[in-house]
C-alpha cells in the first residue's frame, strides 16, 4: 500500500487530495488535520526528516481561493521516500500548529515563515523575527509588500566627515 493510500485510510474524514507532478508526490490537507497527519507520518510511517517548511502567498494567483499555502517537505531517510504536504490558511489570523515537537528542524524554518509571511505557529517555543530587524513591522514576502520596500532601507542617520 502506498503512503498516500495509508494516509487516506487513516484520515478518511479529512478529505486529503493526493496528486503527482513530475517526481513530486503531494498531499493537500486541511489545516485542522495537519498536526495529527504530521504526527502519524513521523511516528508510524517513519518520515523522520523534515527538509523544508515554506509558504506561498496566493493573493495574486489566478484562481486561488485561499490566501496562504504552507508547504512541508518530509523525507523517510530509510527508504528515501519524499512527500510534499501542503495546507492552506487565511487572513485575518493565519495560525498553524507548530511541528517543533516532532522535528527540531522546524524551529528556524517556522520562524522564517513567521518573519516573511506573518503566519503564526502555535506551540512554537520562541517565535520571533529572525531575518529582519525586530522593529520591522511588515511581512516582506507577502504580495502586497512592494519589492523596494516602504523606505525602511534609508531610515538611518547620516555620518559626514565632520562628524567622524
Amino acid at each position: 500500500m502506498s503512503t498516500e493510500e495509508t494516509l487516506q485510510s487513516k484520515f478518511p474524514a479529512a478529505g486529503l487530495k493526493c496528486s503527482q507532478f513530475r517526481d513530486n508526490r503531494r498531499v493537500v490537507v486541511p489545516a485542522e488535520s495537519l498536526q495529527p497527519l504530521l504526527a502519524f507520518m513521523k511516528g508510524d510511517l517513519g518520515f523522520d526528516f523534515l527538509a523544508e517548511i515554506t509558504a506561498v502567498d496566493y493573493l495574486e494567483y489566478e484562481g486561488a481561493t485561499d490566501r496562504f499555502g504552507v508547504v512541508y517537505v518530509v523525507v523517510n531517510t530509510k527508504t528515501g521516500e519524499r512527500l510534499v504536504i501542503k495546507t492552506f490558511v487565511n487572513d485575518p489570523d493565519p495560525v498553524l500548529p507548530s511541528a517543533y515537537s516532532l522535528w527540531k528542524s522546524a524551529d528556524w524554518l517556522e520562524r522564517e515563515v513567521y518573519d516573511m509571511f506573518g503566519i503564526k505557529f502555535s506551540g512554537h517555543p520562541d517565535l520571533r523575527r529572525i531575518l529582519t530587524p525586530d522593529e520591522f513591522s511588515a511581512y516582506p514576502l507577502r504580495k502586497d509588500y512592494p519589492l523596494k520596500g516602504r523606505g525602511e532601507r534609508h531610515n538611518f542617520p547620516v555620518i559626514t566627515r565632520a562628524d567622524s
Binding site: 502586497d144 512592494p146 523596494k148 520596500g149 516602504r150 523606505g151 534609508h154 547620516v158 555620518i159 559626514t160 566627515r161 565632520a162
Partner: peptide, 27 residues
C-alpha cells in the same frame, strides 16, 4: 577632512525614493 561637511555620495533621499515611498503608502 575637516572641510568635508557633506557626505560625499548623493543626497540620502532623492526624489525617486520619495515618490516610491509615497506610491507604496498609497498602495
Amino acid at each position: 577632512f575637516g572641510k568635508r561637511t557633506q557626505p560625499m555620495g548623493p543626497t540620502p533621499y532623492d526624489l525617486d525614493e520619495l515618490i516610491r515611498i509615497r506610491e507604496a503608502n498609497e498602495q
